[in-house]
Design a protein around this nucleic acid. Structure first.
Lengths: 197, 197
DNA sequence: CGCTGGATAGAGCGTTCGTTCTAGTCATTC
DNA sequence: GAATGACTAGAACGAACGCTCTATCCAGCG
């Protein structure tokens, strides 16, 4: 190899995190056996417990953070696509619908499934999921604030925007249809516009 | 016992279904071991496989249907509380927030967790979950239609109302706060009112 | 009374789970 | 070229999983 100073392709640790994020996106935490995980990541059990002494749970927290950032990137892409926040939010639903259908309705929200099954069971994971939701709300709120929305209305709208995206993404996934997401886009745009300063 | 002709308290089958619904509401399908299930239901493995030859999966489908009806009852209660659909929807979020906090943030939507973890894995369960969502949408749509909303707008609004309720319920659960649900109530009321015929 | 069949009861099956453990590889450093 | 330490490799373990199986109970009936 030429450049041995940096990672040539992707380090084992990174492959583990990304694979865990993808598998947990599909089936959540308990439905993701570590052996399948390391196999698909092209790693071994030894590597997993080398990088994550806390085991599956520590890896899962890292995977949730990765999914958090991944979703945030898509959110940023949609939000910056239009200056107007209402149009921007609707653009996000379009991006989500596209990505979801392209994955044969499998790649839903990378956090939701894990969030629901860890409530009251695995506090570390639940906290990581809560942080992700807060992070996404913050992105939406920033867009609204930058457009002149008053502080309180911006914060509240951001909560509902993210929640509706989550709910619509789930329903689109279960029913294998773009409709819930696209309808959510229209309604959120109308709602956001109705508060326009 | 006096009346031996009918079930004295609750039949074993019914206890299994209700217990399964409650446990799946908390942790989903895979997080609900059959042995814990029969123990909490006051039943045994023999009874489970007597009433549900299809095993855990068949019981889970029955449990989803039960949760479907249970949530539908709460939805009906909220929707009939006010003649105006906008106020009615907001009433629903109040009921949900109350029930959720009373359960120490554990009794979320009885279907969502299972829906997400069975996508693309257990078609029978996924179908049962999809049916529940459609059922709830139908209830909201009926309320809007009865209030004179045009057919298409009523259907689309019903989709978003249910999706937003789902998303807000999940976020309220994970963050242990009424806020997401109550904010969703205000926003949904505003959205529904904005379409008032 | 004995027979019958729905319902109950739980020990035990084979499998899979997350984790541990020992052995090994390989680039880097003295 | 021996030593070092980060990393790889996978066999093996105890626990827990869903499910099967045989035995038993008991109300209804001739």
């Amino acid at each position: 190899m030429a450049a041995t100073g940096t990672t040539t392709e992707l380090g084992t640790r990174e492959r583990l995190v990304r694979t865990a994020s993808r598998l947990m996106q599909h089936g959540g935490y308990e439905n993701t056996p570590v052996k399948q995980l390391v196999r698909e990541a092209g790693a071994t059990l030894g590597s997993l417990y080398h990088f994550f002494p806390g085991g599956k749970q520590e890896l899962a927290v890292a995977a949730i953070h990765f999914g958090d950032e991944e979703f945030a990137a898509l959110l940023r892409a949609g939000l910056t696509a239009h200056p107007d926040p209402a149009e921007a939010v609707e653009a996000v639903t379009g991006l989500l619908a596209e990505a979801l259908e392209a994955s044969d309705w499998l790649d839903g929200c990378p956090v939701t499934a894990t969030a629901l099954e860890t409530v009251g069971r695995l506090p570390d994971l639940q906290a990581a999921c809560a942080r992700a939701f807060a992070n996404w709300q913050e992105l939406v709120a920033a867009k609204l604030l930058a457009s002149g929305y008053p502080e309180e209305e911006a914060r509240d709208l951001a909560i509902t925007v993210v929640n509706t995206l989550e709910g619509a993404e789930m329903t689109s996934q279960v029913t294998r249809s773009r409709t819930p997401l696209l309808v959510a886009g229209r309604h959120l745009a109308r709602l956001v516009a109705s508060y326009r300063p």
